[in-house]
Simulated scan of single mutants.
Amino acid sequence: MIREISQLARKAGKEIMLFYNGKRVLNLNTKRDDTPITSADLISHQIIVSGLHRLTPDIPIISEEGSVNFNKSVNYNVFWLIDPLDGTKEFLYHNSEFTVNIALINCGTPVMGVVYVPAINVLYAASNGKAWKEDGYGKRFFINVKKNYPPTVLVSRFHPDKYFLDKYLIKLEQYKIIYVGSSLKFCMIAEGVAQLYPRFSSIKIWDTAAGYAVAVAAGAKIIDWYGNVLIYGPFNSFLNPGFEVSLS
Rank of each mutant, 00 (worst) to 15 (best):
V193L: 15
Y149R: 15
L184H: 00
I203C: 09
A190S: 11
N144A: 15
L172F: 03
P198V: 12
F200Y: 03
S183G: 14
V180S: 07
N121M: 00
A213R: 00
G129F: 08
P150N: 11
Q174N: 13
R199P: 02
Q195H: 05
H159E: 15
F142K: 09
A125D: 01
Y212Q: 06
K133R: 14
D166N: 09
F141C: 12
W132V: 00
A210F: 06
F200R: 04
K147P: 15
K139R: 08
I205W: 01
K176R: 12
I177T: 09
K147I: 13
V193G: 05
K146I: 13
T208C: 12
Y124G: 01
D166A: 07
D135G: 05
I189M: 04
I143E: 08
L172K: 02
I203V: 12
N121Y: 00
K147Q: 15
V145A: 08
A210G: 04
L169E: 03
V180G: 08
G192R: 05
A125R: 12
G129H: 06
G211L: 03
S201T: 13
D135R: 01
N148D: 14
V180M: 09
P150A: 05
S127D: 13
V145W: 02
W206L: 09
G136Q: 10
N148T: 13
S183Q: 10
Y212E: 03
A209W: 05
Y197M: 10
W132I: 00
A213L: 04
T152M: 04
L123N: 03
A131P: 06
D135V: 04
I178P: 01
P160Q: 04
N128Q: 14
A194C: 09
G129N: 08
S127M: 12
W132C: 02
A190F: 11
T208Y: 08
S201G: 02
I189V: 11
T152E: 03
T152G: 05
S182K: 09
G136S: 12
T208H: 05
L169A: 02
F186Y: 07
N144Y: 15
T208A: 13
T152K: 05
E134D: 06
W132G: 01
V180Y: 00
W132E: 00
